[in-house]
Design a protein around this nucleic acid. Structure first.
Lengths: 365, 365
DNA sequence: TTGTAAGCGTTATCAT
DNA sequence: ATGATAACGCTTACAA
């Protein structure tokens, strides 16, 4: 790789002039610029990002940290982030912690390569996040509560969960159960809170039942099996995400229970399978790409816009009503490959933007 | 962020000593090392990657370029790559070209930040690939034919396509058609070639029919519609990937054609939906994560192993026989959420590693 | 308009 | 064992 010195010699100018031509748009005589451009082309010169970054004191890059990439969730967010960042001329470094022991070290190492960091979920200890933020590194937290003055971006959970649960209640269900682990993540916790709030509002608050499950299909299957084998089994299962719902489908099938006739099931995320499985799955869609793009914009404001006070953004979610809740044609006659949206008796309010700390007004949570 | 100078001053030593303590394991008096370590801890010093990289002449990072991130294909490969690279202590930069006009420029820019580049599919012009490779930058090409002395890594297509097509023929099908665009990518081209080879072997070579389609579902739907409306419609459709197959399912449904009874359908990739859709989709699984990990290992050999002669690797694929080919229980009684594997009359040879240029021995392609 | 030279934060080679 | 100091490739005042 040729350096700026070789180009300068080839063009018969100083390195300063080469720099002026190749990067900043400073005034250079047309004739000189031509000579330099020629030399650059001849040698195939490409300025070293290292030298440039060192001199400018900026990396022109940011990093995004995720726990793992199974399922579409993280990859969609990363895509949205990368797309927006690339549009802004910023490079993107990715780091999957994969539950590694020394994740904090990897993140610290990554921090040395970037102008800012996006951190998804509970991949990094609050301690490191705070230390990094205190050190002046712009940080955006995704699907995670605020920490250390960092920005946060998330999607609306509570109101959507209330709407979803209320929808099931309006279908006539009186024995509802939640499958998921409210303590595993803020997302799951808020969905659980919304579920309870809806029951409360309907005057069915007595001991809302939940069975703990990770976001994995096989744990969802186990949790659903447990619930369905109870003497008085629930007639509606609100699953913390679609994979749990998939496990629930399996458990129902095994027991000869028909969805939604015997048991209604709902999910969360709207993964592709939700539209293809039979019956199609009623679920909540999160704008994942937009979440990533939002993170990129927050980052830009910090790095280039000079913003210092933290911002906390929340994106609206969308209830996708299909068949598994009891709406629409019976699963037998419904085409497998069909996404339908029923009219909902009450307006599906999940579309409105909800300010943090003022969500679900009127409900005790 | 404190620099090495501040640490040196704090510890009362020279920057050289700090460097010795903080990075390379050079010999330092125990007492001095303690003082330096203390200063490092007090100041929260973290060596600048920029300074280090500039001095060492290496980035400690590589980049991976993909066209877009829709579908699991690219994200799985990227995950495999990132995982292996992180294990090797290397950072990973990602760049999605998204069909952008100036993709080549973005890639050139990226090239200035990394020790090597992985390029997927036809995202970058051969011209730029060759230029970069000539410039001495290690390059690994994924799902793309060799160029400019770069390494390549790919998955087996031809033999798997022969096996898959032969399987359909053994089911009794005589009118088979291929849906996909053989010219759009080497992958599609090889699948088409394998399809034809299998017909040839069965003595059904007369004008194998194909309808061009991109890898998108809606084009697959259109192509399948066209085929199914022909006066003598095919009884088996070999789709170049699963999304096309999904479109084909829709087209069949619309026409009241039952899969596999009236029309057999196969896909390629084994996306998650393939196991959940009804009937379950017979398809070919590619080891995507392994492909990414392989790319990372090839990169490491180049960057740190000092290898110069190009390597061209091919990973075996696996035929996933489910219901849509005609195997197994009828779709009506088969549980939707069930992956089954029939025994195949002939050994499913797609598992063996096939050397480039020696694949599918015995067939004219 | 162009050139000179001082950083930017490391590592590595010499001396000492 | 430790300290000066010269790279590394670039940007950017400041001079000319």
């Amino acid at each position: 790789m040729p350096t700026i010195y070789e180009v300068a010699r080839q063009a018969g100018v100083s390195i300063a002039t080469v720099s002026r031509v190749s990067s900043n748009g400073a005034v250079v005589a047309e004739e000189t610029r031509g000579r330099v451009l020629q030399a650059i082309a001849d040698l195939g010169y490409q300025p070293s990002r290292l030298g440039r970054s060192l001199a400018e004191g900026t990396h022109g890059a940011s990093g995004i940290v995720f726990p793992d990439l199974t399922g579409p969730y993280y990859s969609e967010v990363i895509l949205g982030y990368e797309d927006q960042a690339a549009t802004d001329g910023q490079s993107v470094l990715i780091l999957g912690t994969h539950g590694r022991e020394h994740a904090d070290d990897l993140v610290r190492e990554l921090a040395g390569r970037v102008d800012g960091l996006v951190i998804m979920g509970r991949t990094v200890s609050d301690e490191v996040v705070t230390a990094l933020a205190d050190g002046g590194l712009p940080i955006v937290l995704l699907a995670r509560p605020p920490a250390g003055g960092a920005d946060t971006a998330r999607t609306e959970n509570l109101l959507a969960a209330v709407t979803l649960t209320s929808h099931l209640i309006e279908h006539g269900h009186r024995r509802l159960a939640f499958i998921g682990d409210p303590d595993s993540s803020p997302d799951a916790g808020e969905r659980w809170a919304g579920f309870r709030a809806a029951l409360l509002r309907a005057g069915m608050a007595a001991a809302p039942s939940a069975v703990r499950s990770s976001f994995r299909e096989h744990e969802g299957y186990a949790a659903a099996s447990e619930l369905l084998d109870r003497s008085t089994r629930p007639t509606a299962l609100v699953c913390a995400n679609d994979e749990i719902a998939l496990g629930t489908y399996g458990a129902c099938q095994e027991r000869g229970l028909r969805i939604p006739h015997d048991v209604a099931v709902t999910g969360w995320d709207d993964i592709a399978i939700a539209r293809y499985i039979s019956p199609t799955l009623t679920t909540v869609r999160q704008p994942l790409r937009e979440l990533g793009a939002l993170a990129a914009r927050l980052m830009r404001e910090r790095v280039h816009g000079g913003r210092v006070e933290p911002r906390h953004e929340m994106l609206p979610t969308e209830l996708m009503i299909r068949s598994s809740c009891g709406c629409g044609r019976s699963p037998a006659e419904a085409p497998a490959n069909d996404t339908q949206r029923c009219d909902h008796p009450a307006p599906l309010g999940a579309r409105e933007k909800v300010a943090p700390h003022s969500r679900a007004p009127g409900f005790e949570v």
